[in-house]
Design a protein around this nucleic acid. Structure first.
Lengths: 341, 341
DNA sequence: TGGTGTGTTGAAATCGATTACATCAAAGCG
DNA sequence: CGCTTTGATGTAATCGATTTCAACACACCA
């Protein structure tokens, strides 16, 4: 429990003023070489470390950014967090994380208490009044909300849905099911809309089940699907977790994927490739997205609002074809009818 | 871009001194009811929010804890993070995350720059000199290191390994394989040692492959296992990811789990239950662990070092039997021998 | 009536850095 | 040689809160 070393201690040991120590550390070229050496030596022997509260107060900034996400334990986010932290850490920024589903008042405070000087927002369901009330640099990532007055970095969800539908239609599936996310979620909305539109364009029949992106929702959807008189043979899930839950429940129901039904997921999480069978899915480059969002925030912090209208093109989707999709087999599709006849 | 409201603004509007405003906010019972009301009113109309840099500086604390983990994108951690954040957020603490594999100098700074007043450490491979040099409340979680002078909250890995071995032995498996984690990792070490000890106690043959907890390592181990003349019929993997990778690769090799080989994982991640077949594994209560670690840190922050020697009993393991383990089938086990004869 | 305690309040010091401004020496220049 | 410029350094103000200490009013009690 050594007493904390302050800048005055370094200054007195080096025989200079605190101003000089401060300068030697943050703008070495402005002090004489001899002085600089003395100061550095004193810093070393005292083991001085800056007190950031003091510096932050004086400089009116926190050297910290905040990541706000609706569910920290969602595995979809972890790689994004890692990328943001890496990118931000490289330029000396601390990274805070917080669940965005805390009380409204706490949420308001986050933008005002001066503990963060930028926010990466992964939640599109916060009251716009709260979000626009923060006057901090802000970027929306993945989820977004038209009412937020901030640049965003989003994935091209409609194009992704089209890719999925085209893939299934190309394989000959004429009846498709989409297991969607929660109704009030933009990602779910745009994927659902994209699905319906693409299905119409390909003239295939389209049905939608509501879900919430989770494994459990996928399993539930599988049970509903199994109870259908006419089972769609192509299923497009709004998340990989959901798709995996669907397939897993199919296994319990004695339905084989992809023989009896083709399933395609969304995200390309790590497990997608190691599931049995490996999941056909739409890849979202999560690491790249996190990295880019971090860079946007950093640019805004430095350029002071420079990137305000910098909402660029959406991130392009990529279809990853693996083992859960197969050409529609007319025989299999009609097996029940055959059994009846 | 409204000018930031300061405490003096509130004070002058309310017609009192800043001291009174400060007291009205942090110790309301010490100011008169009439004054309190005036102040609260002024706070409301001005929209005053405290500047935490100023408060932190004066109070010499940061109201923030830091989570340090060796790999932020590891899905095993996400639920732990969420639990810590929830618990810490409830008592007004901010949560920072950082990868622990940043440079040594940056690591040293973390304990000294005053931005965090407590650390939850999930990495046992940091130089003890660095860790013990921080004079901040610290708790070790999950991973640990004997040289760190700090309380820890750990999982009972030897007992867990015993549980796994006993389960396989009870099912009649006489030859076991353990796919371990990296050599320098305490978790891997203790699981490996527990495995060998338990196998000896049950008089079953035991082999160990090195790995690193990842899906890829599991797949690699499956290939090695498949090349063995005498394949162990019971496999205990040091992580669920590893087990899933093993099973997934088995599928590609035409080997069936659990018919040809029983596999047991470690962690009970969310996917374990939705994998096909569902993974038999050892459960680590990650949420509970995070929550408890957060409470330890909070207690240390309040009680100032009270919980110094509070390293309690290790968390008890729980075996979750699902679909990847089956009784050893002598016929299957000897099928190759039979084919030769 | 005077002394003591109690409850409220304000003035000013304080936390530990950064930085605007002043100072001073040395150098450059006609 | 005197005057300006430049570079290095120190002094002191500043960031915005908290907190110590003193002051004061009032009640209570002997």
């Amino acid at each position: 429990m050594a007493e904390r070393v302050r800048i005055v201690d370094v200054a007195s040991l080096a025989g200079v003023s605190t101003a000089t120590v401060s300068r030697a550390l943050s703008a070495p070229e402005t002090v004489g070489p001899a002085t600089r050496k003395k100061v550095m030596e004193a810093v070393r022997t005292t083991g001085y470390r800056i007190n950031s509260a003091a510096r932050d107060l004086r400089q009116r900034r926190a050297r910290s950014i905040l990541i706000l996400a609706p569910n920290l334990s969602n595995t979809f986010f972890s790689r994004i967090f890692a990328a943001i932290q890496e990118e931000a850490g490289a330029v000396g920024l601390t990274v805070q994380i917080s669940d965005s589903r805390i009380g409204r008042d706490k949420l308001v405070s986050l933008g005002y208490d001066g503990r963060a000087d930028g926010i990466v927002l992964l939640d599109g369901n916060i009251d716009p009044e709260v979000v626009n009330g923060w006057n901090l640099p802000l970027v929306q990532l993945s989820e977004w909300n038209e009412s937020y007055d901030a640049p965003r970095l989003v994935f091209d969800n409609p194009a992704a849905a089209r890719l999925a539908v085209d893939h299934l239609a190309d394989l000959g599936h004429r009846a498709l099911l989409h297991v969607s996310g929660p109704a009030e979620n933009v990602l779910a909305e745009t994927r659902r809309a994209g699905f319906l539109e693409a299905a119409a364009a390909r003239a295939v029949s389209a049905e939608v089940f509501d879900g919430d992106f989770t494994l459990a929702a996928g399993a539930e959807a599988a049970r509903r699907w199994a109870g259908l008189a006419e089972r769609p043979t192509g299923v497009f899930c709004a998340s990989d977790e959901c798709a995996l839950g669907f397939i897993s429940e199919c296994g319990r129901l004695g339905v084989s994927v992809p023989r009896d039904v083709s399933v395609i997921g969304f995200d390309d999480i790590d497990f997608a490739d190691h599931f049995l069978p490996a999941l056909t899915t739409i890849r979202q480059p999560r690491e790249e997205m996190g990295r880019q969002a971090a860079r946007m925030i950093v640019a805004m912090l430095e350029g002071q609002g420079a990137a305000a209208g910098a909402t660029g093109a959406p991130i392009a989707p990529e279809l990853v074809v693996r083992g859960t999709t197969l050409p529609a087999c007319p025989a299999a599709a009609r097996s029940e009818a055959a059994a009846e006849g």
